[in-house]
Design a protein around this nucleic acid. Structure first.
Length: 707
DNA sequence: AGCACGCCGACT
DNA sequence: GTCGGCGTGCTC
């Protein structure tokens, strides 16, 4: 191996086949420092080139970076030579590299981990020769359809007045500020998708690529179908974790090579390299799924906005119930607010009825109250008589959330978690929903032998059973994570609902998203109060969005819309959230929530970072955070920075799968101050682990969704 | 994070 | 005498 005089200097010898020292990123989290490249010898390659690099005893995928930084290579150290270049591929473009650089520094991950983790995994296995073969075959796209002679845009409906206005507003915005973000506020059924399609059409007509992000791809086959219908002559590819590794690579290549016109995908798609990017759409922008919950915990929605600004490309965020972060940006004029207040086709939103559960007759002593109040049952019967369908929304699967022994007060706890085990009657198990621990339900109390142990509370299994008893002969279907575990059963159950083979559908959150039920005219939120009083400050925001979305399942057929209803069983009918919901008034809800957040100094009025740790003992977890807190507080004092470092606390679930969890919150009104603290603090955290044996893992979450 | 090397128990 | 447990340490 050749000797080099010093790192990071090109070897100035043209005879020596112009070997240079190249800064290369590999997938290594260990280089905690934010900017860290490894130095290799190789031919002159532009930044963004993908290479094969020797690393220890293996050969890994590497990415030539723009500049070396923080490199610990010693002067005179022998550098190894790159093993090859994936040169049939164009280098990843500057805009892509800048996005990765920002994400790595903002979410405090190493550049190498960030960059390599957002490339298709299959790319790691590719050597230059097999890549060349792959690209040569079928023009590089395998089974993807080649551009056809079909019209590039199919017939499209006349925009409604709302849509026309929104489109005019968006066109004006784009002319004024090409990299600007617009927030499209439109209730379910207001025709947001048509606005996306029109904007996409325009970008496509200018020869640009369109990136469409959705929270979960399996919930949005309609959107994919509509894009394909509307743009039959264009190449659309998807990007999500459900693809096989080969498909994902093929789709990614189509995007990167500029062959794909439309990329539709989940959060990972925000990192698709798109040489002709012209528009980014983020549908249901409030959805928590946009936040990655492991590894680099990025928010794809926030990165989409950043990317738009970076590339001078418009970003369109759409929601009926925007995140309060986006809403505040719109209020401040940082995002353009584009309201769409009418449902298409004069369809009315479902009427919201609050059922005051405190006014319902009390159940006899010792008996549990019936699951549905008398007026709700009457409303259900009415639908049955009219041959319409109803949806009972209960966000709790299983038969009962806990079993209880009235004699000795035993409860069905989980031996590994600080949680109850849920009674699943169908397979007679007690299951922990957090660690998966499961065994047969005991015949008698395991503590005192009392044979009369009782279910407490109600899940979807029990509700399904009780409905059958209350309304004999009714056809009930249950859709939740348990009933749809087998592949294809969800589709099967949904088609039974669509075919009218079901009168009442019982379901969890799963059924509230995306599905276009035409015959449902009644939605009942059976027990939504829990979310009102959670410790999570975003609980109300999520509940409001969920109930609006659930209500949106009713009356999707314009003819039935007039008599569609959303009933809410609540012990807190006066709660401001329900009062806003009754009027479908997102704006009053948001105003009230923002006032509360401002008083409490919570986002979007402050910025948060959360350090979480899991350890074998509470002491180890506590010690780790205590040391971390000491360092953070020392930094804050030295810098006289406005950052609050809160004491460590147990999270809602303090023990999961035998590991003790603790967390510590950092809060600041200034994002730069918080970022500066994180940047200086994190390298030291990696060393702390050695001082606190028993720590299994720790993670920093910037802009956490739940605290 | 992988994937080595390294130093002590039950097997062909 | 070997196969293999996962404890520490390195990777341009």
């Amino acid at each position: 191996m050749p000797e080099v005089p010093a790192p990071n200097e090109a070897v100035d010898d043209p005879v020596e086949t112009a070997q240079q020292v190249l800064p290369v990123l590999v997938d290594m989290p260990f280089h905690g420092a934010l900017d860290s490249t490894l130095s290799y010898l190789g031919p002159a390659l532009p930044p963004g080139s993908l290479v094969r690099a020797p690393l220890g005893h293996r050969e890994v995928l590497g990415l030539v970076w723009d500049a070396p930084s923080d490199d610990l290579v010693a002067p005179g150290q022998t550098l190894r030579a790159l093993l090859g270049t994936l040169d049939p591929l164009p280098p990843l473009p500057l805009a892509w590299r800048r996005l990765v650089r920002f994400a790595a520094s903002y979410y405090q991950r190493s550049l190498g981990e960030m960059a390599l983790s957002v490339l298709p995994p299959e790319l790691r296995k590719l050597d230059p020769a097999s890549l060349t073969r792959r690209l040569r075959r079928k023009g590089g796209l395998g089974s993807a359809p080649a551009p056809t002679d079909a019209p590039q845009t199919a017939a499209r409906p006349e925009p409604t007045e709302d849509q026309a206005q929104a489109l005019a507003q968006l066109a004006a915005l784009q002319a004024r500020e090409p990299g600007g973000t617009a927030l499209l506020l439109g209730v379910t059924g207001s025709g947001k998708t048509e606005v996306y399609l029109r904007r996409a059409e325009e970008a496509l007509a200018q020869g640009r690529q369109v990136l469409v992000l959705v929270p979960e791809i399996n919930l949005t086959p309609q959107l994919e179908a509509r894009l394909r219908d509307r743009f039959p002559g264009r190449l659309l590819v998807t990007q999500h974790s459900g693809l096989t590794p080969a498909q994902r690579l093929r789709h990614w290549l189509a995007a990167h090579l500029g062959q794909a016109d439309l990329v539709l995908g989940t959060r990972m798609a925000v990192f698709s390299p798109l040489p002709r990017l012209g528009l980014i759409v983020v549908d249901e922008e409030h959805d928590a799924s946009y936040k990655q919950q492991e590894g680099a915990r990025y928010s794809a929605r926030d990165l989409a906005v950043y990317r738009g600004r970076l590339e001078g490309v418009p970003v369109l965020l759409g929601s009926a119930t925007p995140s309060l972060e986006s809403w505040r940006h719109a209020q401040q004029g940082r995002y353009a607010l584009v309201p769409m207040r009418q449902r298409v086709g004069q369809g009315a939103l479902p009427q919201v009825r609050l059922v005051d559960m405190t006014q319902q007759p009390q159940a006899p002593r010792g008996q549990e109250p019936p699951p549905l109040a008398a007026p709700v049952l009457a409303a259900l019967r009415e639908r049955l008589e009219r041959g319409e369908q109803s949806l009972l929304f209960l966000n709790r699967r299983g038969f009962a959330p806990v079993l209880h022994c009235p004699a000795c007060q035993w409860k069905s706890d989980c031996p590994h978690c600080s949680a109850w085990r849920v009674f699943h009657k169908l397979d007679r198990t007690l299951r922990c929903h957090h660690c998966g621990f499961s065994d047969r339900v005991p015949r008698a109390c395991p503590s005192c032998g009392n044979p009369d142990i009782q279910p407490v509370g109600r899940g979807t299994e029990r509700l399904e059973e009780q409905i059958g008893q209350w309304l004999p002969g009714v056809r009930v279907a249950r859709i939740d994570a348990d009933s749809t575990r087998l592949k294809g059963t969800l589709e099967q159950q949904l088609s039974a609902v669509h075919a009218g083979e079901v009168d009442i559908l019982v379901g969890t959150q799963m059924v509230t998203k995306g599905h276009d039920f035409r015959r449902i005219t009644l939605v009942v939120a059976v027990n939504p109060d829990g979310a009102l009083f959670t410790t999570d400050f975003r609980g109300p925001e999520r509940l409001f969005a969920t109930l609006m979305q659930a209500g949106g399942r009713a009356g999707r057929d314009a003819e039935a819309a007039a008599r569609s209803e959303l009933w809410i069983q609540t012990w807190n009918p006066a709660h401001a959230l329900f009062q806003s919901l009754r009027r479908h008034d997102y704006e009053s809800f948001a105003a009230a929530q923002l006032a509360e957040r401002e008083m409490a100094g919570l986002p979007p009025y402050s910025h948060l970072a959360l350090l979480r740790v899991e350890a074998r003992t509470p002491e180890a977890a506590q010690d780790f955070l205590a040391l971390a807190r000491r360092d953070a507080m020392a930094w804050v004092e030295a810098q006289a920075a406005e950052v609050t470092v809160y004491p460590p606390v147990p999270p809602y679930l303090a023990r999961v799968a035998g590991l003790e969890r603790r967390q510590m919150l950092l809060e600041s009104g200034s994002r730069p101050a918080l970022q500066a603290l994180l940047r200086d603090w994190l390298p030291g955290l990696r060393g702390l682990r050695a001082q606190t044996p028993g720590v299994a893992r720790w993670a920093l979450d910037v802009d956490p969704l739940g605290i």
